[in-house]
Amino acid sequence: MPLHIVVTAKQTLDPETPLSAFQIVDNAVSTVGNMPPVINGYDEQAVEAALRIKEASGGEARVTVLSCGTDFALDVIKKPLAMGADELVLLQDAAFDNAIDPTLTVAALAAAIRKLGSVDLVISGRQASDWDNAQVPLGVAEALGWPVATIGRKVEILDGSVRVERVLPDGHEVVEAPLPAVVTVSNELGQARYPNMRGIMAARRVQPTVWSAADLGVEAGRPAFELLSLAKPERAARTEMIEGDSEEEAGRKLALRLREERIL
């Protein structure tokens, strides 16, 4: 049996959105001028990690991408296919509108993985650049009862187990878990590949499978949170810009100001 790898990918607001284009209306975030969404950057690295494993196995692996949400920009969410993933399954339902509460997303992803059957490895990005919860992959692991290894920069399959090089604040550690397992990856994995023209053309022809909450047999239960407020934080705009006749003079004046204020 070839290895079956599931990658989870989330469509999210572009984290490069300038603060000036970032707005909050009625406790919901949007962008001025509706900038196109992107695939969460860490999730692109999860696709990359899966494709590297597939290559290392001589192509003897299948990569299925799962994405959970309310609606999708198809050209955006198909990017993993263009990169080289084999299948795309969209978990799409009005009920999957949950930035704040990961509970239903976890249930939907776990149900989809069970429905796919015979999945050996789930690879996810370490966190999504919207709510930065960093908990859906851990929840999926708990829901499935699978071991988990997070913040990987290198993921390898050995005989029946996965070996992960984890990023630590002052180094790294190598951990190993039996398959099936859940792994999350970090930006230290390296740049995700760009789709080539052939991949883009092939991805265009693929019709993703779509599963609703009913197809998955999940429904919203008791929420974990109630959102009370969402706002841009107050900023004290009191920056003192230091100028001089030359850039060198500005640098010298900066030192003098810091000394004057007894900061140095």
């Binding site: 607001l13 984290p15 603060l19 970032f22 909050i24 975030v29 704040i100 650049s129 919207d130 709510w131 930065d132 949170f225 109630e226 959102l227 009370l228 407020s229 969402l230 706002a231 841009k232 934080p233």
Partner: peptide, 9 residues
């Protein structure tokens, strides 16, 4: 949102 917003839950 990376600090661009603050939520109370």
């Amino acid at each position: 949102y990376g600090g661009a917003a603050e939520a109370a839950v």
